[in-house]
Design a protein around this nucleic acid. Sequence first.
DNA 1: TCAACTATGTGCGGTTTCGCACACTAGCCC
DNA 2: GGGCTAGTGTGCGAAACCGCACATAGTTGA
Lengths: 250, 250
Amino acid sequence: MSFIDFSAGVFIQTQTPPSAVGNRLLASLPDNELDVLFPYLEPHDLEFESTLFETGQPLEYVYFPSSGLISLLATVDGGSSLEVGIIGKEGMANASAALGALTSPSRAIIQGAGTAFRLKTDDLAAYGGSLNRYVLLYIHYLMVQITQSAACYRFHPIEQRLARWLLMTGDRMESNEYRITQDFLSHMLGVRREGVNRAAGELQRKNLISFSRRNILTIDRAGLEATACSCYAVIRREEESFQDLVSTFS
Amino acid sequence: MSFIDFSAGVFIQTQTPPSAVGNRLLASLPDNELDVLFPYLEPHDLEFESTLFETGQPLEYVYFPSSGLISLLATVDGGSSLEVGIIGKEGMANASAALGALTSPSRAIIQGAGTAFRLKTDDLAAYGGSLNRYVLLYIHYLMVQITQSAACYRFHPIEQRLARWLLMTGDRMESNEYRITQDFLSHMLGVRREGVNRAAGELQRKNLISFSRRNILTIDRAGLEATACSCYAVIRREEESFQDLVSTFS
DNA sequence: TCAACTATGTGCGGTTTCGCACACTAGCCC
DNA sequence: GGGCTAGTGTGCGAAACCGCACATAGTTGA
């Protein structure tokens, strides 16, 4: 889907945006505000395993996913990487632009294919409105995610972290099956591929998941929640209060 | 120093705030803005090893340290803790209030005694002005700190993390000697006391520091920088660009 | 269909850190 | 000044994870 197609097919023709914009931040906007913003939103494909932006790169666009999954990665020593945040349709990427920052604090890669609307950071700054309030609330939620991740990586074993990752990904993808290699996953969890293999083997032995080449299937969600560390619940709770605040305002 | 004393002694009498407010965010404000804000600022002692606020606690005040040091801690499983951010006079605590959040994302403790001005979150929200822009920029910088910490705790050994901690603390305290127990430090670095002891012993063996009961002295700052992980440089660089942005606006 | 490549499964020794135990010492208080 | 306590120093086995090596299995394409 390109910007021209979309614009001609939906926006220009009807003069109203599609009633269901997949992204929840955008969908929470009052209709009149969304009308104003809509001409500046540009559809953008999220291609699996591609890089959306790099750490330290100038903030050019912010991205509002309608579907798919974006991972925020911290990298050190030019190699090792670690997922510090997961962004689905409840949020946005490059939110730091709303803080007046000039460069991105982390790397972002597409961890689940989908589509997003993107918006030039200048347009976001110029726009203001209710969106700005949502974006700031979202940044707070993201900080909780990152903070919790820091502690999680320090204190919790791989198996618990994997369980948490599967749950958080499942929540956002609304699916219990993912196509992903263990090698890719190892860069998310900040461990070696072999570590992922052993942890996944352990979860399978407990009949919580089932996995094969490029594929992981969640079998027992409740069991996974019991196995995952408390970080999942903490982040989940914070997300709910974020959603509550957003709906209060809209 | 209490609010009444200070107000009577300095503000009411002279009708101008002291020329040198220690906190750099406040000091960067244009004079006329600081005049407006000043009556709402309340001096507050930062007492060593006391808790400033807890994770999840309602945001009541924001704190602008003039001296001393505040540590932001992530805690899990009701015990293990980990420093994810250090706040000195360059910044503020409970900055999430500026995002519209209702509760604090982390625990804050006083890691170096000093004084701060505090401001009711409602007053901050009502005030706006240039301060708001500084605060948002600071939050971005804090996110970089937390993100980098997450990766650092995952990938770097205790000795490097300790070196980084000594450097970051030294920058903010503007001193090369700290009074702190190894036990206290172990909660900052997310390790056991014994781990701190061994790492410190190693740094001492290399003639970078010298330590004794409740005391650590930095001997060779350049050597420490060489020993510390790259996370120190990353955070340092981000702080500089934060300072640049703030001074651009003021 | 066979080779080449991608991805997974597993063994094993090494390193870091943990967890526990315990000895030692500086400083405080009675 | 003699005990008490907080803080420090150190040894040792266990656990988690790394790093490397290599075998196996699924997938692709000439």
